[in-house]
Structures are given as C-alpha cells and as structure tokens.
C-alpha cells in the first residue's frame, strides 16, 4: 500500500526541491509527483510515497512536512495502488 501526501504551500525559491528532499530523507520513496501550474503564491504539491521500511510512519512524516516554512496545510491518505519501486 502506498500513500498520497498533499501539501499546500507558498511558492518560493527552492520550495519544491525542499519538500521532495525532506520526504525522501525521512525514509519515503517518492513515486509520483503532481503540481498544477500556478503563479507566485499558493500552490499544491501531491506526492505518491511509500515507506522504505516498516518503521516509517505517515503521521510522523506529515508533522515533519507541516513544520516546514511556507507550508500551510498537509493531508495524507492511503491509496490502494502499490507505489512502484524505481527500477534499479
């Protein structure tokens, strides 16, 4: 089972890189990225993620993301489709 995390944030230099990097560093494989085109200001990034081991929890990830500068809301939900591992 993979999960989707939806992040509302204010666009600023490096914000997308910072968010995706954090999710990776906290032990989640990012397997899909979706961000509708926006101008400066509010934006939404939706990531399909799957934990790299059983100790990685979505609620903890959500709290890590929520405290990032410029993040205004975080929602996560479990999805049914498995998140494909990257081909090695």
């Amino acid at each position: 089972m993979s999960n989707r995390i939806e992040i509302d944030f204010t666009r600023s230099e490096g914000a997308v890189l910072r968010l995706i990097g954090l999710v990776e560093r906290k032990g989640f494989d990012v397997c899909s990225v979706d961000m509708p085109e926006t101008g400066p200001g509010p934006a939404r990034l939706t990531l399909g993620v799957s934990p790299r081991d059983a100790s990685r929890r979505m609620d903890v990830l959500g709290r890590h993301v929520a405290k990032m500068y410029g993040v205004t809301a975080v929602r996560s939900e479990a999805t049914r489709e498995p998140c494909l591992e990257r081909a090695s």
Binding site: E13, L17, Y69
Partner: peptide, 10 residues
Amino acid sequence: FGITLPIVKH
C-alpha cells in the same frame, strides 16, 4: 542554497 537544504531550518 542546494548544498545546505538538508541542514537548515530554512
């Protein structure tokens, strides 16, 4: 900016 992304609060 890139090098320090993982080690700064912002």
